[in-house]
């Protein structure tokens, strides 16, 4: 899992059937260096079931963990990254 900031949205009408109906957002990975949260430059497209708002810090899970967020136990969703938590707080020094 990674920590990231919601930085945008992706719209698509033509989707593979196993992805249909899912909201796609752009998340910029961030890391905490020298006491401040900075983007690492990596960006991921993730599905969002939790209605993350712009600027939210979120936890993104990958692979089977992401599929479990969309549909627990299923292998039948075309998702490899999903928002699994909207972060309210963190004890890491430098995090918001």
């Amino acid at each position: 899992m990674i920590r990231g900031r919601v930085m945008g949205e992706v719209w698509a009408t033509k989707k593979a059937p196993r992805l249909a109906g899912r909201k796609l957002i752009l998340v910029a990975e961030t890391c905490i260096t020298a006491g401040a949260e900075r983007p690492t430059g990596r960006v991921v497209v993730a599905t969002d079931l939790l209605d993350a708002a712009r600027g939210d810090t979120v936890v993104v899970a990958f692979g089977s963990g992401a599929r479990n967020a969309e549909c627990p136990g299923s292998r039948d969703v075309l998702v490899d990254a999903a928002v699994v938590q909207i972060v309210d707080g963190s004890s890491t020094p430098g995090a918001d």
Partner: peptide
């Protein structure tokens, strides 16, 4: 371990689980 994270809005599979950075 450099910190822990928490957030009320989360997937079902995260309930009651501790997230560490």
């Amino acid at each position: 371990v450099v910190g822990t994270l928490w957030g009320a809005k989360q997937s079902d599979g995260m309930h009651g689980r501790r997230v560490v950075e």
